Simulated scan of single mutants.
Amino acid sequence: MSDLEDELRRLLHDPKYALPSWPDAVARVHAGMRVRRGRRWVARAFGSLTAFAAVLAIGGPVMSPTGPGIDLPSNAIVVPWQAVPYTEPPASAEKQAAECRARDFAVKGFPSGFGGRPDELIYTLEYRGDAICGITGTPKLEATAPDGGRRTTVVPASSDANSVTVYPGDSVGVAVADSDACVNEYRDPDFSFSADDPTRIRLADRLRGVCRKPKANWIVYGGSGGPLPSPRETLGVAVRAPSQVRSGEEFTYYVVLHNPGGKDVDLSPCPAYAVRVTGAGPYPLQLGGLSCGVSKIPALTGVWFEMRGKISVKPGSRVDLSWELSLFADKSGPGATATVDVVG
């Protein structure tokens, strides 16, 4: 072996000149996996931060700890859920109205006839009270007969209504038969709204040609066209519920009361509400009291109320969830409906 070969062999075995060995294949795979996991974690974290920033920016869905997220407006005013017992609302003003009394009416002008023949005269009684009243009794017409005795006639209404509400500005028309084919003359006809009304309305001095006894009927007409709606009746309602709920499990939904008017709507006393479930056979009515976390619904503004409920029907049913305000004991208020699929 030459000196050159000896020198080359020595250099190749000298550790000072040794090259790094190839890494182990398994170790290389593990290292690559660690790098990729780190990149995915960074991406997920960045995505979560981006989504959270977007929620903060636009308001995002209002999340409930007991139900799915439901998208509400970014500027929604939300009243949290609170279980409030149902309180029977008061009767409507119509139901609370006092009985109409003759002292609050006055004959307006002269009676009018039809077709140029005074076979029937209409006496207009103008209501001059400042509150509504009701005709629930049996109006009567009383007049003095030719023999001097007083005769009383029950006066039926011209409609089938058992009771009628009279509003300020309304009038009551009393139609009295007045035929010139008879010679009998009744005098001093008085009209009253019920037998227990101590006052009477004198319609005229006499009734010409009534053959036997006065015949008459009455009707409410003209005037205000009924009561103005209460401010709460003008509220708009919408319901946002999950598209699916599990049968028998509590879920969260939201109801908005929107005030379209230019004045605030007072919520004191806090109203009651009723919930109906239809579409899967008979289902009990659910009643509750609204949790008035706000004292009023501001003008041109909506307030969202978080609600809780259960629907226990056969899975696979599609039902309508209807929510409505209970303004009066005898009168429902505005409401809205959402369709829900019930799953097992």
Score class of each variant (00 low, 15 high):
P242V: 05
A274Q: 15
D264N: 14
D180V: 09
S268N: 11
V255L: 10
Q244G: 07
R240N: 14
R240S: 14
S243L: 14
R212P: 00
P189A: 01
D196H: 01
S230V: 10
L235I: 09
P231Q: 08
G223E: 11
K213D: 07
R232L: 15
G289S: 12
P229I: 06
C292R: 06
K215Q: 10
P231M: 06
E250T: 15
L235N: 07
I201Q: 02
F191I: 07
V245W: 04
V237P: 05
G289K: 07
F193L: 02
K296T: 12
V277A: 01
T234S: 10
A280H: 04
S291P: 15
E250V: 15
R200D: 08
N259H: 12
P260E: 06
P229V: 05
V239H: 06
R240W: 05
D178W: 00
V239N: 06
V294R: 03
S179Q: 02
S295H: 14
N259M: 11
P260L: 00
R212W: 07
F193N: 00
K296Y: 13
D178K: 01
G279C: 07
K296D: 10
G289T: 10
D197Q: 00
R240Y: 08
D178A: 05
D178I: 02
L290I: 13
A195Y: 09
G248E: 10
W218Q: 05
L207W: 01
T199A: 11
P189H: 02
Q244P: 07
V255T: 14
V275F: 05
A216Q: 06
R208V: 10
E185C: 04
G293N: 15
I219N: 15
N217P: 14
A216W: 08
I201C: 03
Y283E: 04
H258F: 13
L285Y: 08
P198C: 03
V256H: 08
G279R: 00
D190I: 01
T234C: 03
E185D: 06
P298K: 00
R200A: 08
W218M: 04
